[in-house]
Write a protein that binds this DNA or RNA. Structure first.
Lengths: 219, 219
DNA sequence: AAATTAATTTAGACAAACCTAAACATTTAT
DNA sequence: ATAAATGTTTAGGTTTGTCTAAATTAATTT
């Protein structure tokens, strides 16, 4: 079992290496974690002894397979909590991170299993990033703009490109947020606007401007 | 702000002193926290310096007003998370404690405010213990058996006296769990059984045996 | 290719939270 | 009232995770 500090290092290595591709430098880690390079060196020696990273002095670190597995577990927890905070507790995206950062370190397999069920096995977090599966697979999800959907096709909102309050308030008013289920009911050729049904209940007409700013994934 | 360790000491002092009444000994704390008495002495000196406890060497500790306030905050968090785990994630009572113990240390005022709203401002936790208010008041809630309710009176289930699996399964089947809203619809004088409506939907007839084992609070 | 600069590691310290062993208070028993 | 037993604290040490300052290695420039 890893300490909170170790988990944070592993997460940072994962992020900075772009999912485990490239090696990561001590300085990059020290900036990302807001610690001094000397502290990073210390910790890398420790993680290396635990076989969580492959560390060559003066030449950076990479996660081992085990380290990679641990990283995905933490990211899964982080992103599930983000979904919970936004969808159930109505946090805004910017309020979410700091809290999820703490919750991701709570140790309980059962907790995460149940949380996942409670949230309906979400595939993406409120930022549109994919949530690793229980088995530790991270499948990238194809994201498309609402404008690219054909009549009758469905999608779940995963990202919006404009974060101006006025736009977000507009979405709020029509009832669209991350996770909302949409279906294209009709296309108006005149101006390429679409009639969209929201959660299979009400329906609205969205201009092509707006359609370009809303990203969905296939359900 | 207090560390996790400090919070655990404060909580333990609160519990062992019976809510802040009597003083608590070093040994009692060391047993409760599973640490050595020497470690407790260290920490008490530290908490005393922070004015969270009133500590007289060789004569035990008590919480200061500030310490008392902090204790109630932690207990509020712990009990709200317990409600969440049981009501939303379907944890059983024995699975709850260890996890809530970790979650109670997550730092975010907003989180607790929103969690409280999300859960509908519960007044008791899954064990029937009262949840301190945001303002730090802990009002004991009068608990009565279902058998003591009159026709038309309402109650929320807060505790059951029998924890045999067969009994709990029976409750499960009729749809009764902690937090369930009940109302007495009718009394059958013949055997003192009651007709009880469950969550204002279905209704069942419960024998006086069963009625004695279910405790409710006024909503 | 040597010298300078930049990045990294090592060495030695520190705070938090724990420990053991020894010293010191308090309580209890004689 | 004193001695024994019990409870508590102090002193000194350990681990984790951090730090600063000095030493070392790698990269860059001339």
């Amino acid at each position: 079992m890893q300490s909170t500090a170790e988990e944070n290092y592993i997460k940072a290595i994962y992020k900075l290496s772009g999912g485990g591709e490239s090696a990561v430098s001590t300085t990059a880690l020290s900036e990302s974690l807001e610690t001094k390079p000397a502290s990073v060196s210390d910790m890398l020696r420790k993680l290396s002894a635990k076989d969580l990273v492959h560390y060559v002095k003066y030449h950076g670190v990479q996660l081992t397979d085990e380290g990679h597995r641990v990283a995905l577990k933490i990211i899964r927890k982080h992103r599930l909590w983000e979904v919970f905070l936004v969808q159930k507790l109505h946090f805004t995206w910017d309020e979410v991170h700091e809290v999820a950062e703490q919750m991701e370190h709570v140790k309980s397999e059962l907790l995460i299993k149940r949380l996942d069920e409670f949230l309906g096995h979400p595939r993406i977090d409120p930022h549109g990033d994919p949530i690793p599966t229980e088995a530790g697979e991270l499948r990238e999800v194809e994201q498309r703009t609402l404008a690219s959907l054909e009549v009758d096709q469905q999608g779940v909102v995963c990202r919006v490109k404009d974060s101006q309050p006025s736009f977000l308030q507009y979405l709020n008013r029509v009832g669209i947020q991350i996770g909302t289920q949409l279906q294209v009911m009709d296309k108006i050729p005149y101006d390429n606007s679409l009639e969209i049904s929201i959660e299979k209940t009400k329906s609205v007409i969205l201009s092509s401007d707006v359609l370009e700013k809303i990203f969905v994934i296939n359900p």
